[in-house]
Write a protein that binds this DNA or RNA. Structure first.
Length: 423
RNA sequence: GGUGAGGUGCCUGAGAGGCCGAAAGGAUCAGUUUGCUAAACUGACGUACGGGAAACUGUACCGAGGGUUCGAAUCCCUCCCUCACCGCCA
């Protein structure tokens, strides 16, 4: 959520930035400013009436104590209109505030100046490509066939016990999951992210904090009986750890990482592109989260991208880094890098990580602040990224490392899997 | 699920209709003192939204929302949450 004061002070710039995100309702900006004017006027009137009433109430108290009942009664008789005014103005104010909030949440975050214009994924900017493309045997298989061939993943069993999109990992497939999780966590810790293990369900307030609510509730699994949501990403519980917190400047940056399963309903997308592990309702992910000082959040964003690149390099997977264009970016992000690995058997790029700087968009809702050099509270910047999401990494490893004799486990993972071949 | 207790500032905790944005202690910060560490003393120290160049100032906030009253942290109602014990249980 953008701050109203920022919108007021930077109207032109806000409009210009929103255009980069192809925002369709620029009129909202002026509506918000006008509503805020109204809000201020109403509040000032309310404050003034309240001030008068407060003074009178105090005087009445003093008169009563002094035994001057008659004078007190005279004052009392005057309070009626104030009460009415206070009530009316109070109601007006909450109506205006509610209206303002409803409009405010419709504005997406402003894209960073480096964000390219564009509408579709094709217009994302390829920042770099790295790693050699693998040469696969002539009869190379896609990962879902490899998973069946080597008895690693059972999609049908998952359908039986839960439904489509909930695979059962078996044998070396299950062990590979654990190996990747531990490897990613260890690497994140080496990079300075301290591990947290958090609940997989969150309450409504947390959903609002990272703005999955109120708009995207359809994407989350909801436990109505207890009014809890299954997390779509560890970003939600980890970032909400710092909801309503005022940090000291020297506590920044806060760096956390954590592994969780992620649950996404992702209704309405079927077909070849979602076969196998390409899109699931439940998957494992290691997430990295930072809370940063606004002055260096972009440097930290680059660091996070480098960290994720390092993982892909060490796993020996060809990858590319994309800077998302305005139209493809998430609602709350100011700058997003997607990292994709090349799936050799499917002959296409698979998104395995998304690293974003939200600037103050989340922290404004979270009331996540720090005390700046002047001793004043200021909103911190929040950043997060996948490091990494497992399923597509598993898919790419299976496909790219397949040989006539089986699938070779990437070297860095062998200490974790304790086997070198899947065969 | 049952029963009981309770939600006050960074923490502990007082507060029972006006003198309460809130005692006291701790923590933190600044200063004084001190050979170091420690201690002592003095002072500062909530958040948000307005107004003001600033000093400062108005309003709101004691879990949330309503109500009673000239006046509510304090009384009444509804809801939410937490804790303890019992039951069940990994």
């Amino acid at each position: 959520m953008l701050q109203v004061n920022y919108i007021r002070d930077n109207r032109e710039q806000v409009l210009e930035r929103l255009a980069v995100k192809n925002f369709k309702q620029p009129a909202l900006v002026d509506e918000i400013i006008q509503l805020d004017d109204k809000r201020r006027q109403t509040q000032t009137s309310l404050d003034n009436v309240s001030a008068e009433a407060n003074v009178a109430a105090k005087q009445i108290g003093e008169l009563m104590r002094a035994g001057k009942k008659d004078e007190a009664e005279v004052l009392k008789s005057k309070t009626g209109t104030w009460k009415e005014d206070i009530k009316a103005l109070g109601e007006q104010l909450s109506t205006i505030e509610e209206e303002l909030y409803q409009k405010q949440v419709l504005l997406p975050n402003l894209p960073h100046s480096s964000v390219p214009k564009g509408l579709t994924p094709e217009e994302n900017e390829v920042v770099l490509e790295s790693g050699a493309m693998p040469h696969l045997p002539a009869n190379a298989l896609p990962h879902w066939e490899l998973a069946a061939k080597y008895n690693l993943i059972d999609f049908e069993l998952g359908v039986k016990i839960t439904g489509a999109g909930f695979p059962v990992y078996k044998n070396k497939g299950a062990k590979l999951q654990r190996a990747l999780i531990n490897y990613f966590i260890d690497e994140a810790e080496k990079a300075g992210f301290s591990e947290v293990s958090v609940p997989l369900m969150v309450n409504e307030a947390s959903g609002f904090g990272t703005s999955q609510l109120p708009d995207k509730e359809g994407q989350m699994y909801y436990v109505g009986l207890d009014n809890l949501y299954l997390i779509p990403t560890a970003e939600v519980p980890i970032t909400n750890l710092y909801r309503d917190v005022i940090l000291k400047a020297d506590e920044l940056p806060v760096k956390n990482c954590g592994h969780t399963p992620c649950f996404r309903r992702e209704a309405g997308s079927y077909g070849a592109h979602v076969r196998g592990l390409n899109r699931l309702h439940q998957f494992d992910k290691v997430e990295i989260v930072q809370i940063a000082h606004p002055d260096n959040s972009y440097a930290l964003l680059e660091e996070m991208v480098s960290h994720v690149q390092g993982l892909l390099q060490k796993l020996g997977l060809p990858y590319r880094v994309l800077r998302l264009c305005g139209g493809d970016m998430g609602f709350g992000s100011a700058l997003t890098y997607d990292l994709e690995t090349w799936s050799a058997a499917q002959q296409r790029w698979l998104e395995v990580s998304s690293v974003s700087n939200f600037e103050t968009f989340q922290s404004n809702r979270l009331k996540l602040r720090f005390r700046n050099a002047e001793g004043k509270t200021q909103l911190a910047h929040t950043l997060n990224g996948s490091a990494l999401a497992l399923p597509r990494i598993v898919a790419t490893i299976l496909e790219n490392y397949q040989t006539e004799n089986g699938i070779k486990v990437p070297e860095v993972l062998v200490p974790y899997t304790k086997f070198e071949w899947i065969d």
